[in-house]
Each structure stands twice: as structure tokens, then as C-alpha cells.
Amino acid sequence: MRRALLIGCGEVGAKHADALTHAEGLDLVAVADPSPVATPPSGVPLVPCWKSALEEYAPDAVVVATPPGSALVAARAAARTGAVVLVEKPATIDPADLEPAEEDRRIYVAFQPHFAPGLAWLLSQSPTARRAAVRLVCRRDRGYYRDWRSRYATAGGILHQQAIHGLALALRLLPPGSVLSSTTEVHRVRQWGESEDRVTATIAFETGAVLTVDARVDSDEPRRHDATLHLDGGQELHVRGRNLEAGLGPASTAPDDRALRLAMYRALPAGDTGPLHPCLFPLSELRRTLEVIDHAYRNARTVPEARTAP
């Protein structure tokens, strides 16, 4: 039985706390958070300082669910103790923070939708996509943009916080290469925070690959977050779901959030040896995703307001 520590008990941390109590082979020994939003599971100690929790409980596995910036610091500190670490996306919004470090080989990014049906097979085949389209439609209310999420410097934008699941998946299958150009429009209408309400982007790479994005969080339309992949040879694959969770399977059989998290925990290696699960997303691979997002925002054009928020 591996000892697990959860760092962060906010909205996302509470979901991890619930899933970790149902994870086979993992024993949630403590939750570390100086100001928890949620109550830890019954019988699980709450510790205010994650540094002291790492020393006191000596966990084998650590899940980090804190805001960007602090998440990367905590994840690397945990990895230096020898623990294997899952850190919630995006970990940081600055790609320069991901200069390689020795401890990074024990850190993985928590993209539970990548464990959706069929994606392990797809990623194990390593096909090459020449075009990819990522679409996100959801609605975030005013309460979502509170605390650290109200500022771009601490939360990033839609592409960091919302569309990154699909972007990271698409970029794993697009051929390696630098961004050649990007055309991005940022729509800010409701003005509930420094983040935007919609981003549309077309990103071209030196390899000839093209990635398009249409991500909005101000819509009353049915929620969706999917990706369409156009592979070499003409095959077209659709990764579906409210948050990719249907994968390549039918939406009616999509696993729920807890099931995806449990699959992600099961995939964590016990040490530094052996083959990695194809759906695990190493921290080192996150840098390209953040570089693409950073390029899109740096070259973005802000579209004037079309209406005033109620």
C-alpha cells in the first residue's frame, strides 16, 4: 500500500480527495492546505504546511492541486523526496519555468481525460496528425472568477485553465516543430476577471501542421470539449465528450470523473523503472503546450466588446 499525500483542498483538490479514498493500492495519509475550501475525508489529517507534511508523512505518491506557480514549486519539492507526483494543470503559465530539472522525471501532469476510452491505444500507436481542431464550450459564472482565478498572472486564460486538456492531447500527436505563425482573437465581454470569455486561434507550425482552437466559457449551449485529429493517410478521429471523457468511444459509455482519476492513479509508476503508461503526461512534455499557448496570447488581437454583461 503506497502512502499518498494531497497538497491543496480547494475545488479540484476535493475531487482528488474523494477519488484517492477509493483508489486501490493508495492510502491517503494527509491533506495539506493552510486555508482549505473543502473538508478532508473523515479520518484524514489536515496539515497547514505541505513542507512539514512531506517530512512527517514521507509519502510515496503526492497529488498537487494548488494554483499555477505554487503548484510547480510544491511538485518539485515532493519529487525531490523520491515521491512520484501528479500535479494539476497547468502547473505554471510560464514555459520558462519548465527548464529541465532532475526531479521532473518523477512528475506527471494530471490530465485525467487523457485516460478516456481508446486514448491509451491511440497514444501507444503514436500516429502523426497534420491538422487538429480543439473546441470548448462551457459556461463559467461570476463565482468561478474569484481569488487566484481573477488574474491572468496567477491563473492564465481559457487556454491554460480550460482548453489545455484538448490542446495537450493534440500537441502530443502533431509532429515536433516550432510555431511559424498564429492568428488569435481574444473576446472579453463580461469583465469578471482578467481572463477572457472566448479565444479563437489558428496556429501554424514549421512542419506544416495546423492547430485551430475555438474555446468559450460564456455560452449557454450544451457543454463540450472535444478534439478532431486529421492523421497522415487521411483518417479522421474524433475525441469526444463534455471534457474529452468519451474519448474514442460513444458518449453514452463515458466514464465519470472519479473513474478517470482512478485510472490515472493506477497508471502512476511505483519507481523510476519500467515502461510508462501511454496516457501519462510527463511534466517535460508540458513545456511545448505552454509555449504554443504563450505564442497565441502574445500575438492575440483583442476584439472590442459586443455587449455589456448583465
Score class of each variant (00 low, 15 high):
299 N>V: 00
196 E>Q: 10
157 G>T: 08
283 L>V: 05
24 E>Y: 06
123 L>G: 05
49 C>T: 11
180 L>E: 15
155 A>M: 00
91 A>Q: 01
79 A>E: 07
183 T>Y: 13
240 R>L: 10
221 E>Q: 14
32 A>G: 10
236 E>I: 09
286 L>M: 10
210 V>M: 05
22 H>W: 05
211 L>C: 04
26 L>G: 03
204 A>I: 04
250 P>R: 09
176 P>F: 06
63 V>C: 07
163 A>Y: 09
143 G>E: 13
271 G>M: 06
86 L>C: 03
217 V>T: 12
74 A>F: 02
41 P>C: 08
151 R>S: 06
307 R>M: 14
35 S>P: 00
288 R>M: 01
220 D>V: 12
162 Q>H: 14
250 P>D: 11
157 G>H: 02
32 A>Q: 01
70 S>E: 12
98 L>S: 07
138 C>E: 14
129 A>V: 11
294 D>Y: 02
92 T>D: 01
13 G>C: 04
151 R>F: 13
120 A>Q: 06
180 L>R: 15
105 R>C: 14
66 T>G: 02
262 L>S: 12
201 A>I: 01
266 R>V: 02
200 T>N: 11
19 A>L: 04
94 D>T: 09
239 V>S: 04
120 A>E: 14
232 D>F: 10
199 V>K: 02
259 A>L: 11
279 C>H: 05
128 T>M: 12
38 A>I: 07
145 Y>A: 04
137 V>K: 14
266 R>Y: 09
277 H>L: 05
138 C>G: 10
188 R>D: 10
45 P>H: 07
53 A>H: 10
200 T>Y: 01
210 V>K: 03
229 L>F: 04
14 A>Q: 12
307 R>L: 14
282 P>N: 08
78 A>C: 01
183 T>R: 15
117 P>H: 11
209 A>W: 15
222 P>R: 06
245 E>W: 07
38 A>P: 12
128 T>W: 07
201 A>H: 05
72 L>D: 00
247 G>A: 05
111 F>Y: 15
153 A>M: 02
81 T>G: 05
210 V>T: 15
177 G>V: 08
142 R>D: 12
145 Y>P: 03
33 D>W: 07
41 P>Y: 08
129 A>L: 14
11 E>S: 13
16 H>Q: 08
200 T>L: 07
187 H>K: 00
160 H>F: 00
99 E>S: 13
63 V>G: 03
